[in-house]
Design a protein around this nucleic acid. Structure first.
Length: 204
DNA sequence: AAGTGATCATAG
DNA sequence: CTATGATCACTT
């Protein structure tokens, strides 16, 4: 697919190209899933379970730098006692990722955006350590009932941010006194500097 | 311009 | 609502 533009992939899959992504934010990802035959659908599993590979498209600028953070998974806000890094959803999803860079600048019409060279990545020792450290720190705050005090500034490479239809959506979380309260759902995201390093390392 | 918080579509 | 796919858009 490298070098091909999205309109070509869309035509092959009989999918229409939207004018912009405001109402089609997951369009590029789903287009590539369709092209590659990913099977997970909306299940919380790796896209290619049989290969142990997660597929992620990543929007880049003309210098190859990511334009956005990368969503990983929803964050569990209750029933997290006994949960460890090794059995977390973040750990499993990031075991192996096929990154598919796609031009993402809004000045380029969606259909004309080109696909870059895909990168099959596994976290190296340092990356794994950074991810685990951030995950454990964030999960501890959640366990202590401080989810509503966590901002996207926490974490060096992994951050916690809202992941919901809007700011009014509610889900159960742990309160500071240990009881159940309602909070805006959150998700884990990889910060731009981290994914930028992944892409850079692949070409060095 | 970067970074954080908010949001959009869809399936089950 | 939860989970998938993410990008938008406002604030700093």
């Amino acid at each position: 697919m490298a070098g091909i533009c999205l309109a070509d992939i869309a035509r092959d899959n009989q999918i229409e190209v939207p004018v912009d992504l405001r109402r089609d934010k997951g369009w590029v990802g789903q287009l590539i899933e369709s092209e590659l035959g990913a099977l997970a659908g909306s299940k919380p599993e790796q896209d290619f379970l049989h290969l142990g590979v997660e597929l992620k498209t990543i929007p880049i600028d003309h210098n190859g730098k990511p334009l956005e953070t990368t969503y990983v998974t929803v964050a569990p806000l209750t029933n997290i006692q006994g949960m460890t890094w090794e059995n977390s959803l973040v750990y499993h999803k990031l075991q192996r990722v096929l990154w598919v860079p796609v031009e993402g600048e809004r000045s380029i019409p969606v259909g004309q955006r080109r696909i870059g060279t895909p990168i099959l990545w596994q976290p190296n020792r340092d990356q794994a350590r950074q991810l685990q450290q951030d995950w454990e720190e964030i999960m501890e705050l959640i366990a202590l009932g401080k989810v509503d005090k966590i901002s996207a500034r926490h974490g060096e490479v992994l951050q916690l941010r809202p992941k919901a239809a809007n700011s009014k959506a509610l889900t159960e979380s742990i309160a500071e006194d240990g009881s159940i309260q309602l909070s805006n759902p959150r998700g884990f995201y990889l910060k731009i500097n981290f994914t930028q390093q992944i892409l850079a390392n692949a070409f060095s």
